[in-house]
Amino acid sequence: MTLFLIVTLNGLTLAALYFLAASGFSLIFGLMRTVNMAHGALLMLGGYVGYSIVDATGSWGLGVVGGGLAAALAGAIVQAGVLGWMQGDELRQTLASIAISIIMADLMLWHWGGLTYQVELPEALAGGQRLPVLGVGYANIRLALMAFALATGLALWFLIQRTRFGAVIRAGVDDQDMLRALGYPINRIFVLVFALGGMLAGMAGVVAASALSIAPGTDLQFLLSSLVVVIVGGMGSIGGAALGALLVGLAEQYGLAYAPTYGVVFTFAIMVLVLAVRPQGLLGKAEL
């Protein structure tokens, strides 16, 4: 029973991370139809920068913000400098973002080396505590991570559903040309949304580097999870990202605990099942 609870909590932790990573990926895809293959690299950049900032200043909060901002800036540069010029040609954008992710990963390997880093935790988040009712001990940082993902999800929902900027993004998802004909410079909005997606990825990177660790390959791990999460949950839907992250995170941890050498198969089976039943994803809108 304790094992089951711990595994469930681990699954939720992973789901929280996957949601943080996938929400930016999904947001960008929803508005621009861009499959940003450099999303994992942006996440890893945030993680590394966050690590370096925490290492230098000792402030975890500063690290999260700094990592987020670094990835936001990198995302904005990627969109404004390369992908924006190929808007509408999705295959070209995909290939270009792959090239960018290869270059970014290699340059990060150059600068930070092949070591595995873990961001040092502030005192409040270090250690763990016995959870009431459930009666199991669990690490503070992992609990904080779940709270962080929840808060981010709510903030994102508020931003998109309740603010003017969010209304502009939704209008852009519905009909880009019409939004332009109403005086909105769509390219600038694209850059902003790319920065926002990068910000989410970068903060996820720092949090991932705190709760788990970060090393070359982290980018691929989170790119895969983001892909599967949005395929399962539905492309371009934040709620879908949350649901997909929950399913994938839990499946992965149960798989690891109960069938160690076939863990990935669970994730994969969920994806195939969803594709067979609902090709647009659980909460995705059907489109042609």
Partner: peptide
């Protein structure tokens, strides 16, 4: 990898 990434980007 940086070289091959740049080559791919240039081709694209």
């Amino acid at each position: 990898n940086t070289l091959i990434g740049v080559v791919l980007l240039l081709i694209v």
